[in-house]
């Protein structure tokens, strides 16, 4: 069955152990970084960084609130990226991870446009570039192991298990702790539901989450068009052939006159 993750942002202490273990497991090289004004480093996910902690400062009841937000691919239930890919390089797997096969990829980068969370990144500097994004440690999951970032986390910010159980746990935590969380599980409905779901003490828009993402599966939007193609083919061919037959007959009649 499909796996899921519940991220309880109130538990994160911003140690970035998850970020390091992700780099380690995926054998990604270190990159030179620069300070960008806050502690978020690197400032954005990129082809060499599948996950990072965003340090976010907001104000609540007069005082500052610090939040640490873990960013990575959400592994949507029906991913826009996979539906967009013209060659099936991105695929939703049964256990939950959305995986990538470079050997199929043509590098059109439509997945980057399609993903509502801005997740797929490109190896711009390479001559033969790959699309890069969090893999949900699909090989670890296949071997019944917990994803690297979750395994490393010292505070239990993330819990991993059956998707439905994770959602239920999220709801239970909100009910059991009135006032602690905002009443919204980010990822329950966004883009039709995702494998990674978040709990937060402050509204999600404060944390830089996109709250305008429709609560429906995005591939349906393009399928609405594709599904009409057979009808268009039929109408154009029949109407075209009929028009041709009629105009030709008219013309022949003109000649006879």
């Amino acid at each position: 069955m499909a796996k899921g993750v519940l991220v309880d942002l109130t538990k994160c202490i911003g140690c970035r152990g998850c970020q390091i273990s992700c780099k380690g497991w995926n054998e990604m090289s270190a990159q030179k970084t620069v300070m960008a004004g806050d502690l978020t480093n690197p400032p954005r996910l990129n082809a060499h960084c599948y996950t990072h902690i965003r340090f976010q400062e907001d104000e609540k009841e007069g005082g500052p609130v610090w939040s640490f937000v873990k960013d990575q691919c959400f592994h949507c239930k029906n991913p826009a990226c996979a539906s967009a890919c013209p060659v099936g390089a991105l695929k939703k797997t049964e256990k939950g991870p959305v995986t990538y096969t470079f050997e199929r990829c043509i590098g059109c980068r439509y997945c980057m446009l399609a993903c509502p969370f801005y997740i797929p990144k490109y190896e711009w500097e390479k001559v033969v570039p790959w699309i890069r994004k969090c893999t949900f440690c699909s090989e670890r999951i296949a071997a019944d192991l917990v994803p690297a970032c979750i395994k490393t986390c010292p505070t239990g910010t993330m819990i991993f298990g059956e998707l439905d159980d994770m959602l239920k746990e999220g709801r239970d935590r909100i009910t059991a702790n009135p006032g602690k969380y905002v009443n919204h599980i980010y990822g329950e409905k966004e883009a039709g539901g995702t494998s990674w779901m978040y709990l937060s003490a402050v509204p999600f828009e404060w944390l830089g989450f996109n709250t305008r993402i429709p609560a429906k599966e995005l591939p349906d939007l393009t399928w609405a068009y594709i599904a009409k193609i057979p009808a268009v083919i039929g109408v154009v061919l029949v109407a075209g052939a009929a028009t041709w037959a009629i105009t030709r007959r008219n013309q022949n009649m003109d000649k006879e006159e």
Binding site: P86, G88, R104, R109, Y110, I226
Partner: peptide, 22 residues
């Protein structure tokens, strides 16, 4: 596209759910 020599991939790797394939 990033990998020009694979430009023919869509012709053999059918993905009818993809607008880009269409």
């Amino acid at each position: 596209i990033g990998v020009p020599w694979r430009v023919w991939h869509p012709v053999v790797m059918w993905q009818i759910h993809s607008i880009m394939w269409v």
